Simulated assay, not measured.
Amino acid sequence: MEDRKLKYIKYIKEKYPDIEIQQINSNLTDGLHNDVIIINDRDVFRFAKHDFSKKSLT
């Protein structure tokens, strides 16, 4: 699970290089279709857990 979280944070930093990360919250276990990363209690990023779940992100 920690590997997924690190992968998501790396992706976020690549897409948003100016983002200042002071706090990270995550929910990688409860969601049926998505993993959630919350940066600084403000920015929410959802990642599909499965290929078929990608459709729900649009």
Rank of each mutant, 00 (worst) to 15 (best):
D51V: 13
D43V: 02
E2A: 12
E14T: 04
K5I: 14
S56E: 05
R46Q: 03
E14I: 03
D43Q: 08
K10E: 14
Q23I: 02
N27R: 06
I37P: 01
I37K: 00
L6V: 09
Y16P: 02
D41N: 15
I12H: 08
L28W: 03
Q22C: 07
I9V: 14
E14Y: 06
S56W: 07
L57G: 01
Q23L: 11
D35T: 04
E20V: 10
K7L: 14
D18Y: 12
I39W: 04
G31R: 14
D35G: 09
F52S: 10
A48V: 04
H33M: 11
T58C: 09
F45S: 03
K13M: 10
Q23C: 07
E20G: 04
P17N: 11
Q23V: 01
S53R: 06
N40Q: 04
S53K: 09
Y11H: 08
G31N: 11
K10A: 13
V44N: 03
Y16A: 08
R46A: 05
R4T: 08
A48F: 00
P17L: 10
L57V: 07
L28T: 10
L32I: 03
K13D: 02
Y11C: 02
K10Y: 14
R4Q: 06
E20H: 13
Q23G: 01
N25H: 14
I9G: 03
R4M: 08
Y8W: 02
I37F: 00
N34E: 07
N34T: 13
N27Y: 05
R46C: 00
V44H: 07
A48C: 07
I21M: 14
E14M: 08
N40Y: 03
D43C: 03
D43I: 08
D51C: 11
